[in-house]
Design a protein around this nucleic acid. Structure first.
Lengths: 155, 155
DNA sequence: TTTTTAGTTCGGCACTAATCGAACTAGATT
DNA sequence: AATCTAGTTCGATTAGTGCCGAACTAAAAA
């Protein structure tokens, strides 16, 4: 593929990833910066370069980058003798992603337990439904735990 | 537990679930209606009852209920000789939840593949990182598939 | 045929979130 | 000491959501 064609496709992909990330709760600018840092061949962007590339104000860049950094999705490095920050994305550890999913499930599990405990009739439609969900969640959480161990062993 | 005390705790739980659901992208009113339908002992609420209970306008109720229904989270039933709709929450099938998670992963996987394909240097830091993430995701997706089968067999 | 019931749709207000520009800061350079 | 660089912080503005009331509709009841 020609370089110019690849660049064009990369830009399109950044936009697509941007929209995808917006759905994950990122603000538009942050979502696209993240896309930039993932997609482009250049792997470390300075603050100024991001402002240039994305056509955004310095203040927007500043807030977006801070947010992304706090969430642990990007980081920056510096090189001695150079005051600039070089931003790059932090590789998402797959086990960490699974952990996150699991934690969310565990929180939901706790809530569902609370609902059931407050039911007058523990055999009502909803109570029964919720108990089933609970059982299923417990099954998957237990097995995810094992999968994580297996994955760590294999890699 | 006394009925009045339970009711009080149920109301609190609805509020808590409401806030939780807001974080999942539901609008405040929809988030709390969902809580109501899950928590209360009464398992089918009419439109009017929801308006009453939640102290919201009919229009808000209408939009919130439509949204929840479109998302497949609640449904309504009718009884012959009664024009009212009786809303209730749809029990989340655990396997369905896992499917959803899996589909999200698969979509991410497709995106990551696109990124890698557009990289000039397939051995660059980011390309390598992304390939690792890809491998991990494939591992978990494959095994989730097996877990689902096992779960279905056991239940 | 008129009225009532059970909602839906629409326009607008209120509030929140996103982005901007301008002023500022702290460290490096001249 | 003054200037430059690399950002940050702080209102102001704009864009977007959420919710409401009022008007509307379609079916049932009187």
């Amino acid at each position: 593929m020609e370089d110019s064609e690849r660049l064009k496709k990369q830009k399109e992909l950044i936009e697509q990833i941007g929209r995808q990330n917006e759905k994950e709760g990122f603000q538009p600018v942050a979502a696209r910066i993240l896309g930039l840092l993932m997609v482009m061949d250049k792997e470390e962007y300075t603050f100024e370069e991001i402002v240039e590339e994305m056509q955004i104000s310095k203040s927007s860049a500043s807030t977006a980058l801070k947010n992304l950094e706090i969430r642990g999705i990007i980081e920056y490095v510096t090189y001695s003798g150079d005051r600039k920050r070089y931003f790059r994305f932090v590789s998402g550890e797959i086990v960490g992603m699974i952990d996150e999913m699991e934690n969310k499930m565990i929180r939901n599990l706790a809530t569902i337990n609370q609902i059931i405990e407050l039911k007058k009739d523990p055999n009502s439609r909803n109570a029964t439904f919720l108990k089933n969900v609970l059982k299923g969640m417990e099954f998957f959480i237990k097995n995810l735990e094992e999968l994580k161990i297996q994955y760590k062993r294999e890699h």
